[in-house]
């Protein structure tokens, strides 16, 4: 049963909280008792989607594990802005080792907990899309196929933001990055398959795979909670817009994430043992232009020398996602 938004309570479950909901129906983030896993004072940019997504996810995992959580972090923005000596923002036990080994380190932590008979202590590994879909992919796949008891969370902002916005295998076609500049006959990132890690994760047959966005908190919390209720390898990829890398206003982070989902550019779904079991439906479908235009990384598609044919190709990607995952409510529903 996929996540079902609660309607008819003014804002239902669309807002973070809702005083009209029963206490047990409320979100972790609405609670004054939330763990604030990443404390104030971290050095993320203004409006950082990753800082927000990480707190959403880790707080939810903390709530689901009753505070018995250890977090492993790949190198990247999240690690850099949260733990520059002499201050750490983390309120959970946390370890950063390398860029490409977070899944394996997490395997080690989980193994230690198992051997010590402390299986109530749960392990979360986290990294950006570069650390996950590229350099950490070998370790990730290994962790998956061994079905190690780790929840891996990828904060996907579609490029290497920490190093100055370079292309990753999660960068969408046409996007400008420092290594896919908007020059030449096909400006921006090339059109290709990219790397769909959620689907690759599903191909491992692991118990749980899901995608989520920072714009859909309740869905995100539901997925973390669900993942935490299971054992074995689990994977959640959270779309976290980066104001710096996307070239968007700091206050637009959530709006952009919402548009990514509402256009179909970022399909939000969940899968168990390799089979899709639920999708978060598009609420008000919009054309990809609405998602692309506020982002400077797509600015070359518009303006003086527009590339409508490229926009059309991106729309085709969105349409394909909508078809493939059934993101629209059926007329009869």
């Amino acid at each position: 049963m996929p996540y079902q938004p609660v309607k008819f309570y003014q804002t239902g479950t669309f807002t973070v909280g809702n005083r009209l909901l029963a206490p047990d129906e409320r979100s972790v983030q609405s609670s004054r008792m939330r763990s604030n896993s990443i404390n104030s004072g971290h050095r993320a940019c203004q409006g950082c989607g990753e800082a927000l997504g990480a707190r959403y996810a880790i707080d939810a995992a903390m709530a689901a594990s009753d505070g018995q959580l250890i977090a492993v972090n790949a190198t990247g923005c999240l690690e850099v802005f949260s733990t520059p000596y002499p201050e750490s923002s983390w309120q959970v036990p946390w370890i950063h080792s390398l860029f490409g080994n977070a899944p394996a380190v997490a395997t080690g932590v989980a193994a230690a907990m198992k051997v010590k008979g402390r299986q109530e202590v749960r392990v979360v590994a986290q990294g950006g899309d570069g650390g996950t879909t590229d350099i950490g992919f070998g370790c990730l796949s290994g962790m998956f196929e061994r079905n190690d008891d780790v929840l891996y969370i990828c904060y996907d902002n579609e490029a290497y933001m920490n190093t100055g916005v370079q292309r990753s295998s999660a960068t969408p076609p046409a996007a400008r990055t420092a290594t896919t500049m908007p020059v030449g006959p096909e400006p921006g990132n090339v059109f290709g398959q990219g790397k769909n890690v959620p689907e690759i994760a599903m191909a491992h047959g692991i118990p749980y795979v899901a995608t989520a966005t920072v714009a859909d908190l309740r869905d995100l919390e539901y997925k973390v909670r669900k993942a935490m209720s299971m054992h074995g390898a689990r994977y959640i990829q959270i779309f976290v817009p980066c104001p710096l890398g996307f070239g968007t206003a700091s206050h637009d982070t959530i709006r952009i994430a919402r548009l990514a989902r509402e256009t179909g550019m970022f399909p939000v779904f969940e899968a168990e043992h390799g089979e899709v079991t639920g999708v978060l439906k598009i609420r008000h479908k919009v054309a990809v232009e609405e998602y692309l235009q506020p982002q400077k990384r797509f600015a070359h598609l518009f303006g003086k020398h527009p590339h409508p044919e490229t926009v059309a190709r991106l729309q085709a990607i969105a349409d394909r996602n909508i078809r493939k995952y059934g993101l629209l409510e059926k007329e009869s529903d």
């Binding site: 080792s97 380190v105 080690g108 193994a111 907990m113 370790c139 061994r146």
Partner: peptide, 22 residues
């Protein structure tokens, strides 16, 4: 006893387990 996918992972797993007190 963990059959890992590479030596890089072997050392990484050991890093994790050692840091967790094993």
């Amino acid at each position: 006893f963990i059959n890992v996918e590479s030596e890089f992972a072997a050392m990484s797993v050991a890093i994790g387990s050692s840091a967790a007190g094993a």
